[in-house]
């Protein structure tokens, strides 16, 4: 079998990959928790953000990690505008319609990307892409370490916003008691849009963390969002700690099953764990009781 050093290395790598999964899942679970819809446009927005990070580097030489500081606010604004001016008005007050509108947006974004950039897969070439840190028994890739740290910072920032700002408190209030929130003077349409914007900003940051070692094409986001959706259900729909811990667990499970079953079967482990957890806890790890 494998030596402990290899196992530990696999676990570490899994945690590092899982952090980016967690970030994508965080955006998805946030929107679900407040708007009570699955955002079908999440994957397409991730593809769009990967293209944005790609061109920021390719055209302007902007390092992806710096681009995150531009793309996060830009995608926040996009997400805000989508919800406020497209999804909200088009749903005519019925939450189920919002779901369909996000599906429509996904189709439009994906095909616009396909039209503009064709189906080619592209990568960028940054000097630190293959740098690693030697821990003695294993090497950790620098881009993944940066990703892990960045996700930790984003999660902390998000927690601070939710716990301490009026907007964050309003988001939590709308999530659980919409009528009460409206009567307290909270503009629900605005809060929905802010939440959608935060979810979209998470995707933009994830894209900047991925692009140094990953690739982009018009449908690349979908693979991530399938995993992210699994994480959201695994962690408990709408639960932020659930998304974070679920993301890390998923990364480790994928890494370990890749080790034992071979790289191409790595994702089987994710879905096995997914089914097992749901058998024992139908509402997910951190889900509220129905």
């Amino acid at each position: 079998m494998f030596t402990p050093a290899i196992l530990i290395a696999a676990i570490f790598n899994g945690l590092l990959t899982g952090a980016v999964y967690a970030l994508v899942a965080l955006g998805l679970t946030l929107v679900y928790g407040v708007l009570h819809i699955i955002n079908f446009a999440h994957g397409a927005l991730l593809s769009a953000a990967l293209f944005a990070a790609f061109f920021a580097f390719h055209q302007f030489g902007l390092d992806p990690y710096l681009a995150a500081f531009l793309l996060a606010p830009a995608f926040f604004a996009c997400g805000y505008a989508f919800q406020r001016f497209v999804i909200g008005p088009a749903s005519h007050g019925d939450d189920r319609n919002m779901l369909l509108v996000t599906l429509g947006i996904a189709i439009v974004i994906e095909n616009a990307l396909l039209y503009a950039f064709h189906a080619d897969t592209r990568t960028i070439d940054v000097p630190y892409a293959f740098q690693s840190i030697d821990l003695g028994f294993t090497f950790l890739a620098v881009p993944r370490l940066v990703g892990f740290g960045a996700v930790f910072v984003v999660a902390l920032l998000l927690w601070l916003i939710m716990a301490w700002t009026d907007t964050g408190k309003a988001i939590r209030a709308v999530a659980k008691e919409r009528l009460g929130a409206e009567l307290a003077g909270i503009d629900v349409a605005h809060i929905y849009a802010v939440t959608f914007g935060l979810g979209t900003a998470c995707v933009a940051i994830a894209a900047c963390l991925l692009i140094p070692t990953y690739y982009v094409n018009p449908s690349v986001g979908n693979a991530f969002v399938l995993i992210a959706f699994t994480i959201v259900v695994l962690g408990g729909m709408g639960s932020v700690p659930g998304a974070l811990i679920g993301g890390l667990v998923t990364g480790v499970v994928e890494s370990l099953s890749g080790l034992f079953l071979g790289d191409s079967l790595g994702q089987i482990g994710i879905f096995l764990i997914f089914i097992l957890v749901l058998l024992v806890r139908p509402n997910g790890l951190f889900g509220a009781k129905a």
């Binding site: 408190k169 309003a170 939590r172 209030a173 008691e177 009460g180 929130a181 009567l183 307290a184 003077g185």
Partner: peptide
């Protein structure tokens, strides 16, 4: 013009202080 609704409609997931704070979200 403030409406205290039937059924209270407080925010069950938040603390008493946070509930009060949100009463002054707009005013």
């Amino acid at each position: 013009l403030i409406h205290v609704p039937e059924g209270r409609r407080i925010f069950p997931n938040m603390t008493v202080s946070e509930n009060l704070d949100l009463g002054s979200y707009r005013r």
